[in-house]
Design a protein around this nucleic acid. Structure first.
Lengths: 200, 200
DNA sequence: TATAGAATAGTCAATATGAACTATTCAAGG
DNA sequence: CCTTGAATAGTTCATATTGACTATTCTATA
């Protein structure tokens, strides 16, 4: 994830102290990333060393000392560069769900079906939450973009689960996982011994 | 990502040596995860310490020594547990693309549009690759599942980009990012000073 | 006016990850 | 027969990430 882009971008909008950034990220931007606080502080330290942000200590009233971070000119330049790159690239997305699905046939079909229905229910809950969020944010706002994107994605997930459940019911899920993976070797490597099978 | 589930699952299907696992993962399972070799070996070491797999050294012909990994009974039990959990949970997905989109208004609209069109073209390329893959794998196979899932996801991405580009053309993209994020504080924290604005 | 709980502000130590590297073996061409 | 490039098999070291912790301050309420 492009955490550097995110942090530089937020600091470009407004100088902030660390906690404020962290809070913004895990409250307001929770659909964007799950960047954790220690990672954030680590990143801020790196950005400071690189001269992309400056840190000034400040104290307000009786609160403990705080470090306020402000983006520098070279930080802005870097932000611009990273943003342009991010906007034109299509980033590969990986889904944790797919790992389980790879092994779907390792579980008896009725159990598997019940689990996938649970998963679908969880997706529905999340969709409801997002619908509430969308209602609250005007169209065209950045928050709306992120929510809308996730809504589309979750609707896709839902349809996908329906498709899978239908296949499960028809008993159409094959269990020869390795064979399926080995098949269609458009570009085959791995020499004789590996191809042969298991026994060492 | 559930790398433990993946590795235990593959070893449950068949004992393998490290390189074979790594090769399988980054050739055949490249849509599932981008687990790298050093991470894999690190994970295998941990699984061995935990008694979930055993490692036996073996040598074939003149090739250098290899470690063959075999899952143990407790490894199988752990696999089963992880699989059931994975199948019923809905995992949050994060999209790197969203980070750039958050700052879309920081770039002049014509530039931004051109970048997003590039991104869309990249998505199209990937869709074409997936279509080829799907043609090669029979329906119902695990490889087909993963590819079909990614196809659905990428089609969604494409529609999403069209939606965004339409909004960009209409000049409907707002640039008051922080204000939009601060708005609709269903559950507001952060006290006075932070809310006030920038000037320390 | 204590006092519990939430918010504020961050750090530490342990774990996970990945770019770049080592070193051998096999296959094909000149 | 010698060289070059790909495949095999894994390691090293630096960096990124996070669970768990510390410590203070504010707020409400009993």
């Amino acid at each position: 994830m492009d955490h550097t882009l995110l942090v530089l971008g937020l600091l470009k909008l407004q100088e902030m102290h660390g906690y404020q950034l962290g809070d913004l990220i895990d409250r307001r931007l929770k659909y964007l990333t799950d960047l954790k606080k220690p990672t954030l502080y680590h990143l801020l330290g790196k950005l400071e060393s690189a001269g992309l942000v400056t840190k000034t200590v400040s104290r307000e009233g009786n609160r403990p000392e705080r470090y306020t971070y402000r983006i520098t000119d070279s930080g802005v330049a870097r932000f611009d560069e990273l943003l342009r790159k991010n906007l034109q690239d299509a980033h590969m997305a990986y889904f944790n769900d797919d790992i389980g699905l790879l092994f779907l046939s390792e579980i008896a079909a009725p159990d598997a079906g019940a689990y996938l229905e649970k998963k679908r229910a969880a997706v529905d809950d999340r969709l409801a939450e997002i619908a509430r969020g969308l209602a609250a944010h005007a169209s065209g706002t950045p928050a709306h973009f992120t929510l809308r994107h996730h809504q589309l994605h979750l609707q896709t997930e839902r349809a996908w689960l329906d498709e899978l459940l239908a296949q499960l019911e028809q008993g159409a899920v094959r269990d020869d996982i390795l064979a399926c993976l080995a098949a269609t070797d458009t570009e085959t490597p791995l020499r004789a011994t590996q191809r042969a099978g298991g026994s060492a």
